[in-house]
Amino acid sequence: MSVTRLRLVAHGHTAALRQTRFGGNDNLDEGGRRAALALSPADTGRRAGDTVACLSSPAAAAVETAEIFGLAPTVEAALADCDYGDWTGRPLAEIAAERPDALREWLSDPNAAPHGGESIVAVRRRVGRWLDAQRGGGRRVTAVTHPLVIRVAIVHALDLPLATYRQFDVAPLAVVRLTGHGPHWQLRLDASPAWAKG
């Protein structure tokens, strides 16, 4: 079985991320575009003369991030952000004020979906199926997606309890590298990644 090298990249900043809103389909804001442009080719999966498969969440910010990297993304539905149902586009503070019990339930129970959309369990199921299908394919893949999707992917790849997904902080343009060979994934942490310099 061949080794798959998977680079998960969180899309750049959007107004929704800066305002702590649930989901939505915003484009990158100006700061997000500038930060994406500043990443080096090695960070984004590009190498001279090398072909990289690029997959992207359907969200505008993810597609735009991939395109800024000089990659031609193929939209992959499995990489979509959580479906936040009737909370989509609304600020966290607003939900906390209007529906504090529902928000508390969603934050404490991965099976809960008080917004009428997906539970975290459902997101893990979706992302996990996609991740399992990537392993052993012998490809280098850059996948541009959402911080929550990356957090859930890490939990699935390392076979951790789902509740631990909240312990991972995935910032915009964060890069997580997974190597898949045989039945397991390995998480690669770079000691001094180029994207952290400056």
Rank of each mutant, 00 (worst) to 15 (best):
Ala133Gly: 08
Asp86Pro: 08
Ala15His: 11
Ala133Asp: 05
Ile154His: 01
Val75Cys: 11
Leu162Ile: 10
Tyr165Gln: 03
Ala38Met: 13
Thr51Met: 07
Cys82Phe: 13
Gly89His: 02
Tyr165Glu: 01
Arg18Ser: 15
Arg126Asp: 08
Ala42Val: 14
Val9Ala: 05
Gln134Gly: 02
Arg7Val: 11
Arg126Thr: 07
Tyr165His: 06
Ala96Pro: 04
Phe69Ile: 08
Pro114Tyr: 11
Val141Cys: 03
Val52Arg: 14
Cys54Tyr: 10
Gly180Lys: 00
Asn111Leu: 12
Gly31Asp: 14
Leu6Ser: 06
Leu28Phe: 07
Val149Gln: 00
Val3Lys: 12
Leu92Val: 15
Leu37Trp: 12
Arg188Gly: 14
Arg18Asn: 15
Glu76Lys: 08
Pro110Ile: 06
Arg46Met: 10
Ala113Trp: 07
Ala35Asp: 15
Ala10Val: 12
Arg135Ala: 06
Ala35Cys: 13
Pro73Phe: 11
Ser56Leu: 05
Arg99Leu: 12
His146Trp: 12
Ala72Gly: 07
Asp50Cys: 13
Ile150Pro: 01
Ala102Trp: 11
Ala15Trp: 09
Leu39Arg: 09
Asp43Val: 04
Gln167Met: 02
His181Met: 15
Leu6Ala: 09
Ser192Arg: 13
Thr4Arg: 03
Ala163Gly: 10
Asp43Leu: 02
Asp132Phe: 03
Cys54Ser: 11
Gly198Thr: 09
Lys197Ala: 15
Ala171Ser: 13
Gly198Cys: 02
Lys197Gln: 15
Leu39Gly: 03
Val3Phe: 10
Gly24Pro: 08
Arg21Ala: 01
Ala196Thr: 12
Leu92Ser: 12
Leu131Gly: 02
